[in-house]
């Protein structure tokens, strides 16, 4: 396999996208299996990356195994392109591949994300790569891998339903707000990564391929395009997303996930879109630099 000519921008001494080609192939094989069994966690021999485990190494390895010289990469953390870790990962791929990066959601061929699904709907020629800390949705109910694998094999999800039921019995509603468990393709209960449950409905029958990488836990999993993703609930307690009384203070959006910004030490608050691209585009100032103008005031 010949390597693309992006050498001028790339760091010397490293293969295109850091990982060697054999490692990328092994990863892509694991990803193919994951796509073939939606929601099933496929083990893979995760590598040490130059960023710490827990800081997106799973997503970074998935992206590294897929990215080619013609790809355009977008990286977000908490919905924003400008968050420190997103900046760092984007920089890493620029150094290791020389590919073009973007903050515009629709321009990207690969969107790597931590904790959010972009507000703008993704198309079928885009891939969404999630960074995953704990891939096992049953982990906090049963710490043992040997047990949880058995439970998945048997589709035995009673533990999870009991947990959700106990929430309702105690609080009157399900007290899980992010990493809210989903049923994928009517077969596997899956952890959607710590996205707010607000984003769960976007995963259902999404047009783009969704890939999940957990580096420290050595697992990948996938939701192929147009796959059913149902948030677990009960007939008399249907799943519902978060809502706000406010709209975005910067762009006025009433349909986006809002971050609460503390503006002073006397209880002042403002609510703004967590998706910085969505917000700045709505305000019509096009490229990047989200909210900087507003904050300077």
């Amino acid at each position: 396999m010949t390597m693309p000519l992006h050498t001028e921008a790339r760091a010397a001494g490293y293969n295109f996208a850091f990982l060697d080609e054999q490692t990328k192939r092994a990863l892509r094989r694991a990803l193919l299996k994951a796509v073939a069994i939606p929601g099933y966690q496929v083990p893979f021999a995760s590598r040490e990356m130059p960023m710490p485990f827990g800081w997106g190494t799973g997503g970074i390895q998935v992206t590294a195994s897929l990215i080619g010289p013609d790809d355009v990469l977008k990286v977000i953390d908490q919905g924003s392109d400008d968050t420190t870790n997103a900046v760092s990962i984007r920089k890493f791929f620029r150094r290791m591949t020389g590919v073009r990066t973007t903050e515009r959601t629709e321009e990207a061929t690969i969107v790597q994300t931590r904790h959010r699904v972009p507000e703008r709907a993704l198309s079928d020629d885009q891939i969404l790569v999630y960074q995953v800390p704990i891939p096992e949705p049953l982990r906090y109910l049963e710490p043992r891998e040997t047990e949880t694998r058995k439970l998945h094999a048997l589709s035995e999800y009673g533990l999870m339903h009991v947990k959700l039921y106990e929430d309702i019995a105690r609080h009157g509603h399900i007290a899980t707000t992010y990493a809210y468990p989903v049923m994928v393709g009517d077969r596997y209960v899956m952890d959607p990564s710590p996205i707010p449950k607000f984003d769960n409905p976007k995963m259902h029958r999404m047009r783009s391929l969704q890939l999940f990488g957990a580096g420290r836990e050595q697992r990948v999993y996938a939701v192929p395009p147009f796959t059913s993703v149902r948030s677990l609930d009960f007939e008399d307690h249907p799943f519902a997303v978060q809502t706000w009384d406010q709209t975005c203070a910067l762009c006025g959006a009433g349909d986006s996930f809002l971050d609460e910004i503390v503006t002073d030490d006397r209880g002042g608050r403002m609510f703004v879109c967590s998706d910085s691209d969505y917000c700045s585009r709505r305000r019509g100032d096009g490229e990047t630099d989200p909210a900087r103008g507003a904050a300077a005031e």
């Binding site: 710490p52 485990f53 827990g54 919905g79 968050t83 870790n85 904790h115 959010r116 707000t177 990493a179």
Partner: peptide, 24 residues
């Protein structure tokens, strides 16, 4: 290397999750 990564990742922003918990 795994342990320090995951422990120290708590330094990364979690405000989306925190926002969700705050609401709860």
């Amino acid at each position: 290397v795994q342990a320090t990564g995951f422990v120290e990742h708590l330094k990364l922003p979690h405000y989306v999750d925190f926002q969700s918990e705050l609401e709860l």
